[in-house]
Design a protein around this nucleic acid. Sequence first.
DNA 1: CTGTTAGCGCTTTCAA
DNA 2: TTGAAAGCGCTAACAG
Lengths: 319, 319
Amino acid sequence: MTRTATLEDVAQKAHVSKMTVSRVINHPELVAPELQVVVEDAMRKLNYHPNNAARALAKNQTSVVKFVILEDIDHMDPYYTNILFGMATELKKKNYSLQLLLKGSQIEQGPADGFVITGTRVDDYPMLNALKEPFILFGENRGGYDFVDTDNLGGETMATEYALKQGYRNLVFIGLDVKEAFEFSREAGYVNAMQQNKKIPSVNRVKNSTTAARAFMQEHLSEYPKNTCFICGSDRIATGVIQALVEEEKDIPGDYGVIGFDGILLDKVSSPKITTVKQDLWKIGETLAQLILRKINQNGAPQGEMFIKPTLSKAESTK
Amino acid sequence: MTRTATLEDVAQKAHVSKMTVSRVINHPELVAPELQVVVEDAMRKLNYHPNNAARALAKNQTSVVKFVILEDIDHMDPYYTNILFGMATELKKKNYSLQLLLKGSQIEQGPADGFVITGTRVDDYPMLNALKEPFILFGENRGGYDFVDTDNLGGETMATEYALKQGYRNLVFIGLDVKEAFEFSREAGYVNAMQQNKKIPSVNRVKNSTTAARAFMQEHLSEYPKNTCFICGSDRIATGVIQALVEEEKDIPGDYGVIGFDGILLDKVSSPKITTVKQDLWKIGETLAQLILRKINQNGAPQGEMFIKPTLSKAESTK
DNA sequence: CTGTTAGCGCTTTCAA
DNA sequence: TTGAAAGCGCTAACAG
């Protein structure tokens, strides 16, 4: 076993002190350029990699970020893999690693340099306020906390305008019946675009499940004339809407169009495949990581809000 | 800021040396029972938590396990959240944290005490053999590597026998057209159960997509008489099969039954909802963590194979 | 701009 | 069975 190279080794090879090597890594601006070159060369030759535990110990850090899901576990299935990998990839660059926590577990069990938290509701605000470490939320909120989220408003605006452009005359919004910021933003995106185009908005809300959406459609389909496009608050809802339409043997996308929101998986297994507002989960993860890292670095300084642009993924459920 | 308690603090409070405290934590059997009590009491009173970085440094460890996905990224969406959280929860107990890696990234970028790897194919074996650190695979393999997986064979046997019990006379298997151990096991589960019951097996394979499964059904449905149950290698395939059946206005579950495999999400958004063999992903994650931790602890000693029992989730697609 | 000294909190010797 | 000393690899604080 060849012991892995240490600062000391590099220092010797470069004929400088450990500190100079350390500085080249952490504060290169304090080191003479010529020395930098020599030191970097030595590091390369020795295949030097800093020992993270030692650094963490010396700096009194943990090199750990905790990712916390406050929602119920069965909601979480498909959603987080990409976010997690996006985050992890970014964290890795600073040699950070992840711990994953669920609702039940005490957030404060064991230390971390920072938190990324998702699924927070207003009830959780007291707990957030009590948190000593810096944190970033995934998900729009009106509590003034730093967050990253999909541009829900912009995304739904885009969807609405696309439906219009494709020639649908009636646009009906079917959203989620939750009182959450992301849902309000999606509704606003739809409503704004409608008003912009001098159309009368029709906002409906159902439980976020295919079954609920299907039931809603079974009850109301007769009210919607041909050439209607349903702008849905999620792909689950869109899936239910499509099922109801198919049952009634309606012509999709000819007479009826459907647009979903999410683009995680459901859009691709539906038949017809769903046109949807696709979230860039990986990017969201990366951004989450960048913000929390920066916040840690800046001693908890506010990082503001960050909206990640979704894309419209066009498929078979619209003209 | 009240500095967090250290070994030293505990030692003073308990009137012993640091070493005794350290021993109480790591090798309690070497400490007099009476002292143990005193020390543990002091730890509690001071709310002592070991500093992981310090420990890692002293023991020359990293406290990091890497989770590596070798598959293409778009397959991965829904699958891993539960495994990851199951793992993380178990790792946390030993103060371990996670780093997440994807195919492209060099596995060996930066150190870890061990690896959990998924999506390995035969091509990857050389890389596995070159790995210095201990690893556990998620996914059956015939390469002799330690692994954890769902009991694919048992699961499909269970599905097949259930279909029989429900009175379906013809059982048709529609699996994935991949040459992977998990698929062979699922097929074997079906075939064994059929032979056991003196039935002639019919094994078919399609690409793992709803579209492919639907196309297959469109072509072959006429060959299958009423009272047939389709035993599918995945929920994606089951979804496609159901779509084709619905299109042809067949009676599900009366004339035709469908059973899937996975139970991740698709089974619940389908209409009718899919009876499926549900994997216990959380448990798989926990087990993965336990094995890699033990393997690390035992200096790489083989841990063997571990099959996690799935459950049959009964829904609307079968009698 | 560079080096020296000290110490982060823990565990591994070794001695008692 | 317990303790004292040394050191894991790094960085902060100071001095030069």
